[in-house]
């Protein structure tokens, strides 16, 4: 009951956040975003045709009226159709989000697992050769542009000039084998870059926990390393780890990975969002922004619940 009450309170408290995010985003879209009108006109338009298209796009309506329509769309979750393709926005998201999630998930999981593992190793051997090696590698990973990593990995692993082990591009997934085949190189690229950031973060969290008085005391009392690590260090380090992981989820689900999708020819939501941004396809943008805001509220709620699960001192109030 306490959990339910907390959840309801938290969700209600999230409404102003959603309104704030959508209002500011819509303001930017309307006053600073691309004008779609001339994308939809032919080579030799007349003033009358321009006026017709602007009318259809709703550009002539007052801002508040347009925002009111946005709120209505948000409540009904009906954002209409893409101005570029005519595809219903809900259908576009339903088609592209699963692809982006499937693409990003292995890299996300491996990047974090490996980050924790390497962070642990580095913290464990703090100041030693292993620590220096891992942190040095992390710095290198962070220093190389994701774009360069993608192109280099594509050439090394996928092209006929390299190992030619995986598809260069595409997403023709009909089986687990296909999936592994298509997702491997994007995953390696993601992990390569994410690992640097993750390892540094997790190392600092673990080092901090390892330096606490109760850990030192436990060690003095002769608690073996495994229980010490799992019960005293990792458990207490879970709060920042959960925070980091949970708040990455909306990005993975909604934003996808534009560069991966573009360079590997993967029809995900990242590419769709990017196209919508540069062409001013407001129905798609409105949906993406709204969905991101809603997901953030839900993630906040889940994060709080998880805090409580891993640390009984946290109160759901």
């Amino acid at each position: 009951m306490e959990l339910l009450q907390f959840s309801v309170r938290k969700l209600i408290a999230g409404v102003p956040l959603v309104i704030g995010v959508t209002l500011i985003s819509f303001l930017l879209m309307v006053y600073f975003g691309p004008d779609k009108t001339f994308d939809l006109l032919g080579k030799n338009p007349t003033a009358e045709q321009i006026a017709e298209v602007r009318e259809q796009l709703g550009y002539n309506k007052p801002f508040l009226v347009r925002y009111g329509e946005y709120v209505r769309e948000l409540v009904t979750f009906n954002f209409g159709a893409s101005e570029s393709t005519g595809e219903p926005v809900t259908s576009l998201l339903a088609r592209t989000i699963p692809v982006s999630v499937a693409l990003a998930l292995p890299g996300f999981i491996l990047g974090n697992l490996l980050g924790v593992a390497l962070g642990l190793l580095a913290a464990y051997y703090r100041g030693g050769l292993a620590d220096k090696f891992i942190m040095g590698s992390a710095a290198i990973g962070m220093s190389i542009s994701f774009l360069i990593v993608i192109i280099a990995f594509q050439i090394i692993f996928s092209s006929s000039f390299g190992l030619n082990l995986f598809p260069v591009r595409g997403w023709d997934v009909n089986s687990i084998g296909d999936y592994v085949s298509y997702v491997t190189v994007p995953t390696l690229a993601t992990v390569f870059v994410a690992l640097g950031y993750n390892t540094r973060f997790y190392r600092s969290v673990i080092v901090e926990e390892m330096s606490r008085d109760h850990v030192r005391t436990a060690r003095a009392f002769g608690v073996p390393p495994a229980p010490l690590f799992y019960k005293l260090i990792l458990k207490n380090a879970l709060i920042p780890i959960i925070t980091r992981i949970m708040f990455s989820i909306p990005v993975i689900i909604i934003s996808g990975s534009l560069l991966l999708e573009q360079y590997f020819g993967i029809p995900g939501v990242g590419k769709a969002t990017y196209d919508a941004i540069v062409t001013g396809d407001q129905p798609v943008l409105k949906a993406v922004v709204a969905l991101t805001a809603i997901l953030l509220v839900i993630v906040q709620l889940l994060t709080d619940i998880l805090y409580r699960a891993v640390d009984p001192r946290v109160s759901l109030k």
């Binding site: 082990l165 995986f166 592994v180 085949s181």
Partner: peptide, 9 residues
């Protein structure tokens, strides 16, 4: 182990 996917089949 996961890197052992097939090439374009």
């Amino acid at each position: 182990a996961g890197c052992g996917g097939g090439s374009d089949q």
